[in-house]
Design a protein around this nucleic acid. Structure first.
Lengths: 337, 337
DNA sequence: GTGAAAGCGCTAACAG
DNA sequence: CTGTTAGCGCTTTCAC
């Protein structure tokens, strides 16, 4: 049986109250008493019961994170890095991290409801925001604290950190244009995802700035996996008039495009340029190394967690909207080296 | 303010007890009363307070999972898939999943202590077991329920699920031998990791079975990342007498080896064979596609979670030791197609 | 300096 | 069928 305050109290001959206060570091406990209690607690191996403390303080000291997965083979290096950032920051603040994995949809919202209404967590992290994000709408309606990674089209204010995907994608596209490409294929993610629509805007911005008319047939939608990048790549590059360059809106799909190109006998970097977005570590080790746009994933994890901590402690954020500027990383997959 | 049992009790004019029992589905509540209570609870939006219930029942209905990370750029598709398996299975049983991310070492053990001694979880999942695994030793000493993915060298019994890495690696190595390779480089993970030592055994088994003397200089240790696979690959393939094939003990490193080979002007599948282990989705889309050994990562996540559920509910496992047999997946990186 | 008492929201033994 | 009572382990008034 675990040691409780009562056990210590009985042993030292003081009341539970005094023991509690000594352990909590209150200064209205006699120094000698405090010493005795501290020592005894140590000896007896006392550890406070997290649940009891929670019930009393009405705080869980836990934050929630529902990972939006897609299908069983959810093999996404992006999320493991993000999770490491969040998890390590949470540990710094002695917060527990409650994780759920749910595909977008009804079950996902239920996971949020569970965390919120059954008071399992004090605040939530919402990632991969969507246009009319039901999660954000829900949390806002409940007045529940959260921080999002990504913006939304909802006409409401909420705290978020985001990467300027539009700017990043614009730079990337312009880079390709500067290399002489005019027919640039684009593999987007479903457009209800905010980051997908931002990035697509950036692509369009660049085309327009250089007087290139958007060819709708060059724009496909993928599911963010290598496999779907591969399939979209086959389609684009298999055309009679294929693009000379293909941009995928994340690295995983870009890797799939490289695979597709090679399967069609094309040499990436020479016959066709391929680029991605994220700069996961694999990008640098692709064949050829992948030109991409870097977002500091681990840091983002830390920062959104940090923001949530501030929100929970202070009740508000001094800087509730943060936009990070991503960085173009040029490698051989676009043949410019 | 959230609705409590008390609120409902006051509204319907019954005691808290009766409300509690009606909601819990006990059959000693009058049908009409039950209906009234159920309806009222629904109307008022009652959701039980998880913390209060936990304090009372002395169960958290939460399982813990400490992810062993390596460095900040913890970008490992293996873990996101494993986590999805665990998370989805946990959801099926209405269990919360508490996740920590800690590099092996002191902080990691502290994360375990925190979960165990402060009674934050009912049971734990331990992955990537080690020879003298301090986590397992600790949990066993505390008599705390857990299930491991992987065995250990400790002279103790505990419930685990494992993949027969020795057998899998043996098959893979023999495949390479059958293709004519005699000088086969091997990039292991640190040998205190059980799976690394099992797989190395399998490699040695195969060599021995075919009368090939182990050349120690062909065996290097990596850190399971693409980068470290790349570095080890450069070393092995940069030798005056390079191996004709290189096996990495996980896919991520194998991808790094492919990158290294290409950087040295070698064509993988023709000039040198490369193989990995895991069969992450990226393996199929590598250039060339990677020969590897498949372990069903998502399923493993589900099963260890399932085992923990059984352990928690029944107090013991009907099948406490499960060994899965992995499957060789032949692709072009070994030039056999 | 210290302790008694209350109570967080829930469940469960027991009595009627 | 229903209510009373007790209590999970902790924190926090409020007295003394």
């Amino acid at each position: 049986m675990p040691v409780t305050l009562k056990d210590i109290a009985e042993r030292v001959g003081y009341s539970i109250t005094t023991v509690s206060r000594a352990l909590a570091g209150y200064d209205d406990v006699a120094e000698s008493t405090r010493q005795l209690i501290l020592r005894t607690a140590q000896e007896m191996g006392y550890r406070p019961d997290a649940t009891a403390r929670r019930l009393r303080t009405r705080r869980t000291d836990t934050i929630g994170f529902v990972i939006p997965t897609h299908g069983p083979r959810f093999s996404d290096p992006f999320f493991s890095e993000l999770l490491a950032g969040i998890g390590n920051e949470a540990a710094r603040w002695e917060l527990d991290l409650l994780v759920s994995t749910r595909a977008p949809g009804e079950e996902e919202i239920k996971a949020y409801e569970r965390m919120v209404t059954e008071r399992r967590v004090d605040g939530l992290l919402v990632v991969r925001t969507r246009r009319q994000d039901p999660r954000i709408a829900y949390l806002l309606e409940k007045g529940f604290p959260f921080v999002a990674f990504g913006r939304s089209d909802l006409e409401v204010d909420f705290p978020y950190l985001d990467v300027d995907g539009r700017q990043g994608m614009r730079e990337l596209t312009e880079h390709l244009i500067s290399l002489g490409h005019r027919r640039i294929g684009y593999i987007s993610a479903p457009l209800d995802l905010m980051f997908a629509s931002h990035r697509l805007e950036g692509y369009k911005d660049a085309l327009e700035a250089h007087g290139i008319v958007l060819d709708e047939r060059l724009v496909l939608i993928g599911q963010l996996t290598e496999q779907s990048g591969y399939e979209a790549g086959r389609v684009l590059l298999g055309r009679r008039e294929p693009p000379t360059a293909v941009i995928a809106c994340n690295d995983l799909m870009a890797l799939g495009v490289i695979s597709a190109a090679q399967s069609l006998g094309l040499q990436v970097g020479r016959d066709v340029a391929v680029a991605g977005f994220d700069d996961i570590p694999l990008a640098a080790h692709a064949q050829p190394p992948l030109t991409t746009v870097r977002q500091p994933i681990y840091e983002i994890g830390r920062r959104i967690c940090r923001m949530l901590v501030e929100l929970l402690r202070e009740g508000s954020l001094r800087e509730p909207h943060v936009i990070l500027r991503p960085r173009l990383v040029v490698r051989e997959s676009c043949g410019s080296i």
